[in-house]
Nucleic acid binder design. Structure first.
Lengths: 223, 223
DNA sequence: TTTCGTAAGTGTGTTGACACTTTTTAGTCG
DNA sequence: CGACTAAAAAGTGTCAACACACTTACGAAA
């Protein structure tokens, strides 16, 4: 018998770094680590049962994504987004989502439309139940699907990072029933535009949606 | 006397990771590491006189940027871009550069225009000397400046990563005199459009430039 | 009481070592 | 000579430990 019992054995089929990264993202999204707060490597490491090495690698990744920022000899901090940065993000997302709509429209098929339709209906349910968390997740899904149907690998990679970065700003609970209703009305418009296959129409619809989101954000900022 | 002589002392005022990252990027850009080739951590570490830890962190960063990709138990490889991925990148850059032009036009001032003009003139010099390397650097500069003048922090962050990723595909030496001349004619159009302050005009000019670049790339691919 | 300097404590940045996996090499058999 | 097998080498993934930087707490002097 050659096999040796490994104490806390890692199966060595998958690096721990992505898992750690996802976990830290979750901690931030759930607000368990506040914006501006220091991320202590040892704490994360112990929490996940790994050493600091992989944790640091994950933190570097999150730094590049924009969720953390590193300060020499002080470690990693959860980034906090200024109002301008949040608005910049909206402008950027508007462009990219518009591009996604334009590219997706001629490529989309009935099956995909049906999939989006399901998400749309589910969002209406979430609204009627005032389930903002579910609405947020479905909303993210909807956008991600549209982006994927544009079939541009780099756009598909970048999009989620912008979404999660924006999460730093619009902490949960910002959705009101009215804003969710407006948002989903726009989703309906996007759906129809995509189904029509008209690129310009779809681009207008997708751009408009993010533009309206920016307005909603501004209303939240200014009271 | 309390001060202790540190043997191979790093001053601990700046993390070594960014430096390592830049160095690996340089190695890739200079073609000292070919596309698809494995990046051996120990080699890089010894080359730069550091240990593998920081090297791994730098590699993770470059993975996120898209220059490297990691394979479990095999390490990091220099990514090689498929033709579709390169074209996807052009589509994405076209959108973002168009956005940059639109936003920069109303914000730009005479001083910045003059700066761009200098770069433009220098590029004409480089063309007449058939100095493709200098042209490439100036070209990158020109684009980067336009992007910065758009004053969108995230766009400014993302742009260089897309440029360096594209470098993986269009390895140096792809510039012909004719293509450089065409490219700089388009720069002239961009300059004038920006100087006019008209967002739509500037967006058209900047988008057109990347679109033409895509055509030039396609010509290179197909012979 | 306040302020400054000093010392303990906390935490990062980096390193070297170990376990495991993949690759290469060497050797054997057909 | 070629193919298969086994051992050695190379290289990654992770960890534990060290040295330094920063922070905080404590105490003495003004």
């Amino acid at each position: 018998m050659k096999t040796k019992a490994r104490a806390s054995a890692q199966l060595r089929v998958e690096s721990s770094v992505p898992h750690i990264q996802a976990e830290i993202e979750r901690l931030i999204a759930n607000g368990e680590i506040d914006a501006g707060e220091r991320v202590k490597e040892a704490v994360i490491a112990q929490l996940l049962g790994v050493s600091r090495g992989p944790v640091r690698e994950a933190c570097r990744l999150l730094e590049r994504v924009g969720l953390l920022k590193s300060v020499m000899n002080k470690g990693f901090y959860v980034r906090s987004l200024s109002a301008k940065e949040a608005l910049d993000l909206y402008d950027l997302r508007r462009n990219l989502f518009g591009m996604a709509g334009r590219l997706a429209a001629p490529r989309i098929d009935d099956l995909k439309i049906q999939g989006l339709e399901q998400v749309y209906n589910a969002m209406n349910e979430a609204i009627s139940e005032n389930d903002t968390v579910r609405f947020y997740n479905l909303n993210t899904d909807f956008h991600q699907q549209v982006v994927e149907y544009a079939d541009n690998y780099r756009l598909t990679e970048i999009w989620p990072t912008l979404e999660s970065e924006l999460q730093l700003f619009r902490r949960q609970g910002l959705y009101t029933v009215a804003s969710m209703q407006n948002s989903n009305r726009e989703h309906r418009v996007i759906l129809d535009a995509l189904a029509s296959g008209n690129p310009e129409l779809a681009q207008r619809a997708t751009e408009q949606h993010i533009a309206e989101g920016k307005v909603r954000l501004l209303r939240n900022i200014n009271g």
